[in-house]
């Protein structure tokens, strides 16, 4: 018997049934810092106007995945595309909200300055930040309820307020995909509410949000879909489909009690 001819890999699965290109498609993503892989052969695809939670235990490679998608960390293998193009060529359509702890909050900048940074891509090289850019930065601060703090030095804001400044900065980028790294970590209830509202708002404008998330209880309330990671991709799809006992068990193993897993799976 003659073995089958292999189909070229180029053609498939980036376009969906309607021929639209997925905002984000990740295939075979493998990242290893040392001998231990941080991500192993991860595949998933995210569709438009989706709110996606990336969940998994500590060290599951959630942040690494976001960074790898953005090209901030070297990968061993994998093919990452945004709207069918390599991420490098789709930068303007992607906004990134890093972990709050990744920057020096004592930096000499005001909330407005930080939000204006989101506009730098649009302003372009060598051109100064003009008044209309500042105006636009203020509008975005207003959207997250931070208009009164525009000229405050960022170090004097509370953790939740800092997170909202970061969110406003991402909004200023007016992107089609928002990648957020643990925006809910250590924030107050008001900020949590504000983040959720903003996410829904951008979704209704046609954008997609991918968000590293820790709190399994709220995934069902806040998000449409989930990617469950633990080095490998355990599952990806609508929250109701992927939040099964089996998947959660595979991702969290002994780290969650069986009863907890069952409760979460049932609630979803």
């Amino acid at each position: 018997m003659n073995p089958p001819r292999l189909i070229p890999f180029e053609a498939p699965p980036n376009a969906n049934a309607h021929g639209a290109l997925a905002p984000l498609s990740v295939r075979g993503l493998t990242v290893a810092y040392d001998e231990k892989p941080a991500l192993w052969d991860v595949d998933f695809e995210i569709s438009q106007q989706d709110l996606v939670a990336v969940i998994g235990p500590n060290g599951a490679g959630k942040s690494t995945m976001i960074k790898a998608v953005l090209g901030l960390t070297p990968t061993l293998a994998g093919n990452i595309r945004a709207f069918g193009k390599p991420v490098k060529h789709a930068r303007k359509r992607i906004a990134y909200v890093p972990q709050r702890t990744s920057v020096d909050w004592d930096f000499p900048a005001s909330a407005e300055d930080v939000v204006a940074m989101g506009l730098y891509g649009k302003i372009g090289w060598c051109r100064p930040v003009r008044r209309r850019h500042r105006g636009s930065a203020r509008e975005h601060l207003d959207r997250v309820g931070m208009a009164d703090f525009a000229s405050r030095q960022i170090g004097q804001l509370s953790g939740g307020q800092q997170q909202r400044v970061f969110l406003a900065r991402a909004l200023a980028q007016e992107a089609d995909i928002y990648l957020m790294d643990e925006p809910f970590a250590g924030v107050d209830a008001a900020t949590e509410r504000a983040i959720v509202d903003v996410m829904r708002d951008v979704r209704s404008n046609g954008a997609t949000v991918v968000c590293v998330h820790h709190d399994l209880q709220t995934v069902g309330d806040y998000f449409d879909s989930a990617v469950i990671l633990n080095i490998r991709r355990i599952a990806a799809g609508p929250v109701t489909d992927v939040f099964t006992e089996e998947n959660l068990q595979a991702a969290y193993g002994g780290r969650l009690a069986k009863t907890e897993i069952r409760a979460i799976a049932d609630s979803a």
């Binding site: 089958p4 292999l6 189909i7 070229p8 890999f9 498939p12 295939r27 075979g28 493998t30 052969d41 293998a77 093919n79």
Partner: peptide, 14 residues
């Protein structure tokens, strides 16, 4: 990766 994509009947991706 090559082996697994070939198992699906595709050419290796990269």
């Amino acid at each position: 990766r090559a082996l697994l994509t070939m198992a699906g009947g595709y050419q290796p991706p990269d």
